[in-house]
Amino acid sequence: MTGVFAAATAAIVVCMGLTLARSIAGPTVFDRILAVNSFGTKTVLLIALVGYLAGRPDFLDLALVYALMNFIGTIAAMKFTRFGDLAGMEDDDSGEVF
């Protein structure tokens, strides 16, 4: 069982490397945010797997918190790139928000 967890952890770490390469390569800011968001999803999976690998399933709580933080972080970064500030609600072309 430990071997399976270790293999999955290694696969996710490799994939995080690929994602990081995309976030450095860009080319647009949206590519970078997408890569960081995807990196966050993999971090959630990594935390859960490492918890089982180390025999400490309490790590699941951290994974839960990280999943929510990752979502809010992505939305905040997206909103900042779109409006230029975090409180702005006015849209650039019509009445719709989001």
């Binding site: 647009t28 997408l34 699941l60 994974a63 999943a67 992505t74 939305i75 997206m78």
Partner: peptide
Amino acid sequence: LLFFLLTTSPLSSHALAKAAFL
């Protein structure tokens, strides 16, 4: 955890796509 990922991942993808499109 599965439920959170299920609900938040399409939302952030859509928000990103829409921000880029606009």
